[in-house]
Write a protein that binds this DNA or RNA. Sequence first.
DNA 1: AAGGCTAGCAACCGCCTCGTC
DNA 2: AGACGAGGCGGTTGCTAGCCT
Length: 278
Amino acid sequence: MGRAPCCDKIGLKKGPWTPEEDEILVNYINNNSGHGSWRSLPKLAGLLRCGKSCRLRWTNYLRPDIKRGPFTLHEEKLVIQLHGILGNRWAAISSQLSGRTDNEIKNLWNTHLKKRLIRMGFDPQTHLPMVYSCYQVGKSHASSVSTHHMAQWESARLEAEARQSKDSSFFNNDPNVSDYFLRIWNSQVGESFRCVRKPDDITSPISHGSSSNISDSMSATTIELANNVKEDLKWSNSDSESANDLENSSDTALQFLLDFPINNDMSFLQESSFTCPP
DNA sequence: AAGGCTAGCAACCGCCTCGTC
DNA sequence: AGACGAGGCGGTTGCTAGCCT
């Protein structure tokens, strides 16, 4: 038994939207102070489209607050940094780039940024040098990609907390807070991670048992993993014949992931300056 | 000029989560 | 508690424009 279709597809139009269809959709939403139920919208608006298609067209193209045009260097940098923390969670990433849709960012990543990282010798999933990334697969306690991102996220948070504690401004919501990471942590992106922790127990290990994919991917050792990412790297590098080189490149990757507010130099991502590691 | 190839992007598909009953 | 529907999300597909031979 197959899954029931989201809508009756008989007689519905597919493919690119025409300007007339766009106009009908925009007018309907404007005249009704919102889209209401997406499922019933096509019939009410007089469109031969399914509700999903209407929603997608609106959110990805017709919404008035959408920013068109090429991505700026700053936006590309932000996408890479956030991807390093969040992985392929495009919606969460797009929430940090005003006017950019998840679809747009996903396309940017798949067509540009992923290839650049690969050419630079970085694994686009883990953001670590390819050599280290391959090594991780073979390790007995190798974590899943999502767990790895969680570990990086947690590690970055802990480091940010440490930085903030020096200024005695722990976890404040001041928009002028100096630490860039904590601003993200206090934003919608951080919210998706905080939700898997007990809200009244900031310092406790990450809670278990939630039904979400995120929490499913988090083993009991996740927090330890997060606290020991650097030590883990050094441990793995100690087995390598080119330990020094590997350690340096791994530290560079970590620096890129964890200290991105400090190092604003994106020149290494420019097409002309690629140098693949041997 | 024409055909093939590739990159970029819009749109679709199916799964997942959440809210409601 | 579980079934169901709606919306959201990420992966994938397919069309098109531009480039190359």
